[in-house]
Amino acid sequence: KFVLDYFKVDEPEHITELPRGAEIILLDHNEEKQSIDNIKDLDIVEIIDHHKIKLETDKPISIYIKPLGSSCSIIAEKYFETQTDLPQDIAGLLLAGIVSDTLFFRSPTTTETDKQLVEKLKKISEIDDVEKFSLEMFNAKSDLGDITAEELIKLDYKVFEFGGNEYGIGVMETTNVDFGLNKKEELIEKMKEIKEKDGLKGLFFVIVDILNEKSYTLCSGQEEKELFGKLFSARDDDGVLFADKLVSRKKQIVPAFEEYFKKQK
């Protein structure tokens, strides 16, 4: 909301289904579980993403996948490569997306291309001080008001298959870790409910301290806690697993799980 208000852009409509046969482009994801509810009824014509491919299609489609810090970087590149006119508000939204995804270049997903694109975008969007803008954005992102425990867990939440079982991983990137840690008991209880309801093997909620590049992880059970602690040498502090420099689900957490379960076969 902060970013939309900053650039005076209306909030887009949130939809969960589209008419059967509608053509769609998947952006920043390519897994069915992370997409629109009736994706099997839709015609996927293109994928734009910076994650590895998991989706299979029944026909050739256009796919733009690049190992960049943000899908916004891929879109920005396309604007510049095709010399398409880039409005100030769209340039600002793309800049905000790159800065958010890369934690203002703190994340290990960051590339030199992301940094170069932000330099170009800041001129068009007329953001002179990107660091100041990023801090305002992260502070706004950390101000979650009266959000419920489930809403907090599902704010940035994905389900992955590891070793034939499904695990949920939610992430909260914040400048105020106490907001999440102070709700520890409530969050863990809700995580256990979600785990049971959705038939998951485990659920993790990772609270990322953006400025200090640290994370605090809550787990839905003892087995998951032991596994996470082993994979990331995380220190258990009264039910919270602390890990230094662990800030990226995509680049650090998911690959570690995949590698672990690959070795278990």
Rank of each mutant, 00 (worst) to 15 (best):
E150C: 15
L135M: 14
G97H: 02
Q83I: 12
E126R: 11
F204P: 03
V240H: 02
N212F: 07
D85V: 03
I127D: 11
A140M: 09
V208L: 09
K122S: 07
S100R: 08
D129I: 08
K251G: 05
Y167T: 12
D238A: 12
G221Y: 03
V247P: 11
S100P: 10
P255A: 10
F204A: 07
M191P: 00
L94M: 02
D114A: 03
K120V: 05
D146S: 15
E185V: 03
Y157Q: 08
E31D: 10
I210P: 01
K158S: 02
D198Q: 04
A91W: 04
K122N: 09
L86Q: 11
T148H: 00
F179E: 10
Q252P: 08
L121E: 01
L211K: 14
E151F: 01
F7V: 09
V3F: 11
I39D: 05
I53H: 05
L103Y: 15
K132Q: 13
S71I: 02
G21K: 02
D49A: 06
I124F: 10
I210E: 02
S100L: 13
I210R: 03
S35H: 01
T82N: 10
E193A: 08
A234Q: 12
G168I: 01
L181Y: 05
L231M: 06
I127L: 11
F160D: 03
E77A: 07
A140I: 08
E151N: 06
K201S: 03
V45R: 13
D156T: 02
H14V: 14
E77Y: 05
V130F: 08
P60Y: 12
G97R: 02
K225Y: 05
E11T: 07
S220R: 07
E166C: 01
I47D: 06
E77M: 05
I75E: 03
I48Y: 15
S248Q: 08
V118Y: 00
D209F: 10
L86T: 03
K262S: 14
E151R: 10
V3I: 14
N182H: 13
L144A: 08
E213W: 07
G180N: 10
N139D: 15
A243P: 00
E11M: 06
E186A: 04
S71A: 15
K265T: 10
I98L: 00
I90E: 01
F162E: 13
Y260Q: 04
S107N: 15
R235Y: 14
V254K: 02
S248A: 14
T217E: 05
E196A: 14
V45H: 12
T57L: 15
N212A: 15
T111V: 14
E193M: 12
E193T: 13
L42A: 06
D101V: 11
I39Y: 11
I194P: 01
K154F: 04
Y6F: 15
E166M: 04
F104D: 08
I153L: 15
N165E: 05
